[in-house]
Simulated scan of single mutants.
Amino acid sequence: MSGIVVAVSRALGHAFSKVNQDQIRLIVGQGVEGDAHCGETVKHRSRVRVDPTQPNLRQVHLIHGELFDELRQAGFSVTPGAMGENIATRGVDLLSLPTGTVLTIGGEAAVEITGLRNPCGQINDFQPGLLKAVLGRDAKGGLIRKAGVMAIVLRDGVVRTGDTIAIQRPSPPHRPLEPV
């Protein structure tokens, strides 16, 4: 199974959206070079207030491009980078991957999925009602978070639009994704 990168983005400051780039560089144990969330310890402001020494399990944010299609059908205007992701993909069911899945991107860079992005109320500041649109319920009533996955960088590399994504699932038993 493989997919493709449809956009790459970063932001120097803590803004909700990120700016699309021709390429981004992933740095082992840090994240996206030149991005506000790059570093060994947590950079998300709400988490820094709780404990600034926590490891950064949110170095790279990935969203499946199919979510943009779903949101457009629901009347939202969301393009790659707008929801703060670093890498937008297509053809990879990111939300179904188990924790610990390794994605090799462009044959060079590699990231390990650490968990789900837990969307917060800021998403409604971007577009009213968007938070509800990126949340759902499964058949048993459990909450489904559709706003992408978070990862750490395992191998340095440049990532560009059009790069292929290879998927390597961890050995069983698989752990389902939880918010990080």
Rank of each mutant, 00 (worst) to 15 (best):
R145E: 03
A133K: 04
L154S: 06
G136H: 12
I63S: 01
M83Y: 08
V158T: 13
G136D: 14
G81T: 06
I152A: 01
R117Y: 05
G121S: 15
I87A: 07
A82G: 00
L94G: 00
A151Q: 08
L131N: 02
F68H: 13
P119V: 00
P119T: 08
G107Y: 08
M150S: 05
Q59N: 04
C120N: 02
V102R: 15
M83K: 11
S96T: 13
N86T: 01
L116R: 03
V92L: 15
I105G: 02
K132L: 15
G136N: 05
L116H: 03
G91Y: 00
L95Q: 14
G129Y: 08
E66C: 01
G148I: 08
G91S: 10
V102T: 11
P119W: 05
L97I: 08
G84C: 09
L71A: 02
K132P: 03
P80G: 09
L97N: 10
E108R: 15
L135R: 14
V153I: 07
A147P: 00
K132Y: 10
M150V: 13
V60R: 00
K132H: 13
G100Q: 09
L116D: 12
G129H: 12
T161V: 07
T104I: 07
V159M: 08
L71K: 09
F68R: 06
R117C: 09
A88M: 02
L103H: 07
S96M: 08
V149P: 00
G75V: 03
L67K: 08
V92R: 06
D138R: 02
G115L: 09
I144T: 12
V134P: 01
I144E: 13
P119S: 10
P98S: 05
R72S: 14
L97R: 00
L94F: 01
G121R: 15
T161D: 12
D125E: 14
